[in-house]
Simulated assay, not measured.
Amino acid sequence: MLSSIIDGNGKMGKNSVPVAYFLGFENLKQEMETNWKLFKTKIIDYTYRSLGEMFSTPHISYFYAPESEMAGAISGILMLYLADQTKPVIGFSVGKDETKVSSRGTRKLVSRGLNLSLVMRDASAAVGGSGGGHDIAAGAVIPKGKEIQFLETAEKIIETQIGKVQAKAR
């Protein structure tokens, strides 16, 4: 819970509030808790919004995040609870000059051969970016406007890793 409070404040742009609180400024406790609650409310709203605006390819579910610092958290919630579990989720946060990419998978997909670290590394390199991470969760930074090319490369890599995906019927 402590890491969630600190992370939530950071995602709200209030990194210093929990630091100051834990250094003894007890008057910041209410602000710290309020920031965390606002973050939780935002992430729920953004998750459902992203779910409603989710796109799908044969091997990837993807969305565009409403805020730059939220793609990872949204991807994680979607993958764990709401998205098609037969393929990884990729979230894009498009900035002024670059796009941040966040991906999440499941243990079942990893056991079938998925390695999102390699997907992010190789697909981002193919479009002039960089990436990496873990087999189940990874990220990248790519030039703005290269999202579709990135997806096309990631699609091929994931198909090679886990084979043809059988999407579940809805």
Rank of each mutant, 00 (worst) to 15 (best):
S124Q: 06
S124L: 00
L118R: 11
A125G: 12
V119N: 07
N115R: 03
H134K: 08
R121Q: 14
R121H: 12
D135G: 13
D122W: 08
S117R: 14
G131V: 04
D122L: 14
G128Y: 04
H134A: 05
L114I: 00
A125R: 09
H134E: 09
R112K: 09
G133L: 14
S93N: 07
V127P: 13
V119G: 03
L114T: 00
F92S: 06
G133W: 15
S111F: 10
R121G: 11
R104I: 00
S111I: 10
T106R: 07
S130M: 13
S102I: 07
V110H: 02
N115F: 06
E98M: 12
R104A: 00
G131W: 07
K108L: 05
G132E: 06
T99K: 05
L109P: 05
G131K: 13
L116G: 11
G95L: 10
S130A: 15
S130V: 11
S130L: 12
G132H: 14
E98C: 09
K100N: 07
V127C: 15
S102D: 08
L109K: 00
E98D: 11
D135K: 15
A126F: 01
V127S: 11
S103E: 04
S93Y: 08
V119E: 03
N115V: 07
R121N: 15
A126T: 00
K96P: 09
S111D: 14
R112V: 00
G133E: 14
G105Q: 01
S130R: 15
D122V: 09
S130H: 15
A125I: 09
S130E: 15
V119K: 02
N115G: 11
E98S: 14
R104P: 00
S111L: 10
V110K: 08
D135T: 14
